[in-house]
Amino acid sequence: MIELKNVTRRFGDTVAVDRINLTVETGEVCVLVGSSGCGKSTTLRMINQLLPHSEGEILVDGKDVTAMNPEQLRLNMGYVIQGTGLFPHWTVARNIAMVPQLLSWPREQIDERVHELLTLLDLDPATHAKKYPQQLSGGQAQRVGVARALAANPNILLMDEPFGALDAITRENLQLEMLRIQRQLKKTTVFVTHDIDEALRLATRIAVMDRGRIIQHDTPENILRRPASDFVENLVGKQDRGLKLMSLHTVRDLMDAYSQPRQPEPGADGLKEDDSLRVALSIMLWQNWNQVPVFNTEGQETGTITRERIIQEGA
């Protein structure tokens, strides 16, 4: 758990972060969102003390960060930044092994962990472990960046616009990857972005920041349904709020489930349980379907969903 109490950061006379209060519960993903210069990155860097705070108190698992040795503090926090910051003179494997090496893990354990992480992030250890960062694509490099942050199994993950420099398709892939990994690992995560769609997709709770203050701190659903101010309303976009709400829920939430999964008819078309309602509606409109079967990840048919129900209850 991370708690910020009345935290202020000044640079000379300008106040970058102004008396903010924020609690990030264990295992949740807190996304700090706002335009550039709103203080979101500054807030993140105060949590690992790359920037000391001017006033207030920051507690990590109940302990004041200023009372801890900064290296010890950071070794227990994965850190991912835009542009990866991978070490260009080290191989992918050595980059990932960085924190375990600082913690003097035995050699075999480090090798095993590197292998495990490359596999977790969908990179083939045989082809990628010996490469250098310059030989990777942007998406692969950021996967390595995430793997490096996870290497020593930290409780906390700090991510500073990690996918900001990637193209749209790669970014979406990595967001999905992150959701999958987060479901497995349940790290307490603070994630900084200026992209509200990224925030809505990844967050357990979103903190909207503007000019050094937190305007609203709530679940994605509540941010969309009850924006606290015009600023938040403009940020989430007034017009397509309905569709954005639909993207927060999956087909699983609104389908009529069968009592038992069935074997599907061969060649049957349908939706997946994990598809968002927004995607589901889009596909159904395009294909002109009114009712379609739903499949689980094993390919079994587990229920059906109707267009009518999505339109009535989706948003």
Partner: peptide, 18 residues
């Protein structure tokens, strides 16, 4: 030396000397 590399190194828990 790329500033992001230095920032990452510090942020991951290396001491300034390391």
């Amino acid at each position: 030396v790329d500033a992001t590399v230095r920032q990452a190194a510090l942020g991951m828990g290396m001491s300034p000397f390391q």
